[in-house]
Write a protein that binds this DNA or RNA. Sequence first.
DNA 1: ATAGGGTTAG
Length: 428
Amino acid sequence: MNGLMEKPTKFALCNALSSCAKTLNWHLGIQIHACLIRSGYEDNLFLSSALVDFYAKCFAIVYARKIFRAMKIHDQVSWTSLIAGFSANKQGRDALLLFKEMLGTKIRPNCFTLTSVINACVGQNGALEHCPSLHVHVIKRGFDTSNFVTSSLIDCYAYWGQIHDALLLFNEVSEKDIVIYNTMISGFCQNLYSEDALKLFVEMQEKNMSPTDHTLCSILSACSSLAVLLQGKQVHSLVIKIGSERNVFVASALIDMYSKGGDIDAARCVLDQTSNRNTVLWTSMIMGYAQCGRGLEAVELFDCLLTKQELIPDQVCFTAVLTACNHAGFIDKGEEYFNKMRTSYGLSPDIDQYACLIDLYARNGNLRKARDLMEEMPYDPNCIIWSSVLSACKIYGDVELGREAANQLIKMEPCNAAPYLTLAHIYD
DNA sequence: ATAGGGTTAG
């Protein structure tokens, strides 16, 4: 890259940029950018497209857009790279707008473009309305035979709860590969069609397709939802057979499956055998202890991890340990953890941790403290908070606060009859 | 020469 070297070819720079994009090598990529400017290649279409992709992949979407806008002509790759960049960057709206702009040009979208723009509809509020027209594009251009395009469509429909449409697409695929199966299985799981997920998993194996880590995660989550411990254990055997227990996502799914299936000790066993334990895994474990009524163990585990500095807790982790305090009635501990969030870890509590502490106070009859905290916190109380206040008011006979809680809940969920009933009990 | 699918968890 220094001036003494021979001038690199456009081809070499293009390949190098592509590698930098794939490996997220920012440092080298920007040097190549500088080099291609020095070499007078700035107007080269291929290199500019590769630059758009490089910056987009490295989350420098502003630069990607800048390069794209500076280009005099575009090709399918530069359009697609920027659309894909917006999608990956959770800027689905920008991806959809850019796609629309592309349709006004002479450059036609291809199956790479369609895959990218369909992905933009996942996780983007209100994007469901764009799906049918994108689907029409896919069919009109004959991309419906592409498994890449189809899997993104299946995923998109499943995300929006249109499991029937997803299944129609899935059934039409003539050569189903592992990603197509995984997408459909995961779609079933997301929509809590756990039985269907398991059936498809069996069908997949009958066709001699080997499950991947993705498959195992989905299937374990289906077993968790159904709380079918026996089936979950069979999947665990499969995990070991394939050698996927080192995958942290699989480990996480296993811990969750055992916790929800009621075998917390097996969950702990999985965790102990996992070499790269992270905050998510510890949090699952702490929550598992909390929810099966072993709050003391949850708190002891948490304290031990902090002492040994094996855990840097985040908000979700504090929610888990505060939940444990609630179930065990540890008021002082709960307050201590709540304060520690800010003082030791610089975390500002979010509404979930406030809800835990309010619940802890309320459950133990300290409605005054619960109410003070609600007024003091920087959030509007949600249903969870009003519900715990309401049940506490029922137990401790606080008519005035109980009436307010019931009214708030009725306002928030007019169709839910529960607050009316609880309120009636309070007046009794 | 450059671009695209499931990217998972608490």
